[in-house]
């Protein structure tokens, strides 16, 4: 039997390993991305799925929220940076900061709420992928591939924090891939981002006391 990491795709092949998957200790981690044992699933045969259109979906560009506009503008700032347009990038960041500042606060800022939102996103991805595939939009499909993995990792880490508390992070650093958002717990960043494959220098360390 083969077990696949739902985050980075690492395969634990029992035929090639000494220990059957079920007998691995509970604190065993994915050797590639550090995901928990519970993030692995037994390899299942591919199933043909049918696209079910939902007719309530209509684009309304005029109704982007302040939070979304913050991301639209910080994304365009990145776009300018990649085109070596430093001044334009700075101006888009000014707009992004404005929208971040006017985004309304939430009343119930709890770790449980963060976990719930992540779980909802995980459940949402297959449908978004269907819509992307149906529209032959490979860029949107790529967003689903990366986003689902990153979201699963966040969900896994937040749930672990809810169980283990502060001791989970006492002696270790937290790293964020500045390209795809993958979060990694460890002393050093991974050799290669397990999701988007960029080198370690693209990882940012979350500083203590910052």
């Amino acid at each position: 039997m083969k077990y696949v990491c739902q985050i980075c795709g690492y395969i634990y092949d029992e035929d090639k390993e000494a220990v059957p998957f079920e007998q691995l200790p509970d604190d065993w981690k994915c050797p590639l991305c550090g995901a928990m044992k519970s993030d692995f699933k037994a390899e299942a045969p591919a199933v043909e799925k049918a696209y079910v259109p939902t007719h309530t979906e209509t684009a309304d560009l005029k109704k982007l929220s302040a939070g979304q506009l913050a991301a639209v503008c910080s994304n365009l700032a990145r776009g300018c940076e990649k085109q070596y347009k430093a001044e334009e990038s700075k101006l888009f960041n000014e707009l992004a900061n404005y929208f971040t500042a006017i985004t309304p606060a939430v009343n119930d800022a709890t770790v449980e709420k963060v976990a719930k939102l992540l779980q909802e996103d995980i459940e949402d991805y297959p449908h978004i992928r269907d819509v992307a595939d149906n529209g032959k939009d490979r860029g949107a499909a790529r967003v689903c591939v990366w986003g689902e993995k990153v979201t699963r990792m966040l969900s896994s880490l937040v749930n672990r924090y809810l169980e283990e508390g502060e001791q989970m992070l006492a002696d270790t650093d937290i790293w964020v891939c500045t390209v795809c958002g993958f979060v990694y717990i460890g002393q050093e960043p991974p050799e290669l981002c397990p999701v988007c494959k960029v080198p370690p220098y693209k990882f940012e360390k979350i500083e203590r006391g910052a």
């Binding site: 979304q68 913050a70 991301a71 910080s74 994304n75 990145r78 770790v111 963060v114 967003v143 990366w146 986003g147 990153v150 979201t151 966040l154 880490l157 937040v158 924090y161 508390g165 502060e166 989970m168 992070l169 006492a170 937290i174 790293w175 964020v176 891939c177 500045t178 390209v179 795809c180 958002g181 993958f182 979060v183 940012e204 979350i206 203590r208 006391g209 910052a210």
Partner: peptide, 21 residues
């Protein structure tokens, strides 16, 4: 301190995914 760092990482990660979207 752990929660502060983890939530900072989550916020950054969410923004990066949102930018990509």
């Amino acid at each position: 301190t752990g929660l502060k760092r983890l939530m900072t990482a989550v916020a950054k990660s969410q923004r990066l995914m949102e930018e990509d979207i």
